[in-house]
Computed example of a mutant assay.
Amino acid sequence: MKFEVGDKVVIQHSNDEGEVVEIINDKMVLVDVRGVKFPAYTDQLDFPYFKRFTEKKLFPAEKKPKKYIDQLPPEKPAPGKKKERIAQLADGVWLTFLPVFDSDEFGDDVVESLKIYLVNNSTLAFNFSYTLTYSGNSDFNLDGALPSMQDFYLHDIPFANLNDNPVFGCDFSLMTPDRKLAEHYEASLKLRAKQVFGRIEEIRKKGEATFSFKLFDEYPLRPYEEEKPVDTLGLGKLAGSGFRIYEASNGAAAYGVGEERA
């Protein structure tokens, strides 16, 4: 099926209804489902009217007797369910890559570029400073905010640039400072073309759209700093001026107090 921006669609595996907000290529689109955007293959989508038509039954369903509200048992709270996200990842913060395919002169699918996202599957919200370097030279910088359980689109890079030793770096800090947690945390990812080729083949076999690398599991604690004793008597200044400072327990011995004299 061919879709256009603005088309209402149904996700086959979840029956969620959404809207096409971007055409990635002839086989993939970006879908918005209740405010959550994620890529999906077009063969995994249906038009709502097609779904409703195929679900029509030859015979009407048997009507069940009405129940009134005072006859219904109290509803138990359902456990929380995470929204469908760009990638079903475990806890932590991830860098997620979406390969964008194109056809070459022989009609074969080749990766043209990679869309890059930051994915925050933790309970904390972060500010971040993102940098991309090639062979040690800075190429792209971006500062932004990454709320809890949200994704942030960073940018696209040509697939051929993987031959230039890219390093993806992020410096994270808390949006709400916590005295128990570190002021900031730096994480980086180095990728090689051969490594990415392997991941792309893996997701194509599984029918998935993205692959991801974890930047960190948990935001680190603030390093422990041992408190120094307060010099309330100013003895440090005396010692620095040439005075000899003794422990109180050794003071008498230092001056010969208590020793027998001949």
Rank of each mutant, 00 (worst) to 15 (best):
E202M: 14
G256L: 01
G251C: 10
E22R: 09
A78C: 00
D26P: 15
V167D: 02
L95Q: 09
Y224L: 12
P74A: 08
G35L: 07
F152S: 13
S135A: 06
N163V: 09
D43S: 08
L238M: 11
D139P: 00
A252Y: 13
E247Y: 12
K81V: 14
K180W: 06
H13A: 13
P74M: 12
F128N: 02
A160I: 02
L45P: 12
C170Y: 04
T54G: 05
F172T: 08
K83G: 14
F140V: 02
T123W: 05
K83R: 10
Y185L: 03
T42D: 09
R244H: 08
A187P: 03
L238Y: 15
R204T: 11
F101Q: 09
I11E: 10
R222D: 10
F128E: 00
V257Q: 05
P229C: 11
S148E: 10
K63M: 00
I11Y: 08
A193R: 11
N15L: 03
E208Q: 12
A61S: 11
A61C: 03
I86Q: 10
K67T: 12
E225I: 13
Q12S: 10
L191A: 03
I157A: 01
D151Y: 06
N15G: 05
V110W: 06
F140L: 07
P99Q: 10
E218N: 06
P177Y: 01
L142Q: 13
K51C: 09
V230D: 15
K81A: 14
G198N: 05
H184V: 00
I24T: 13
Y117A: 06
Y117F: 15
L142E: 13
I69T: 05
L98W: 06
F213R: 10
K82L: 15
K27P: 00
E4N: 11
A90E: 14
P65C: 06
F101S: 07
D46N: 12
E225A: 12
F101P: 00
D104H: 02
R222G: 05
F50A: 15
D171H: 04
V257N: 06
V230C: 01
Y49F: 14
S212Q: 09
Y130P: 02
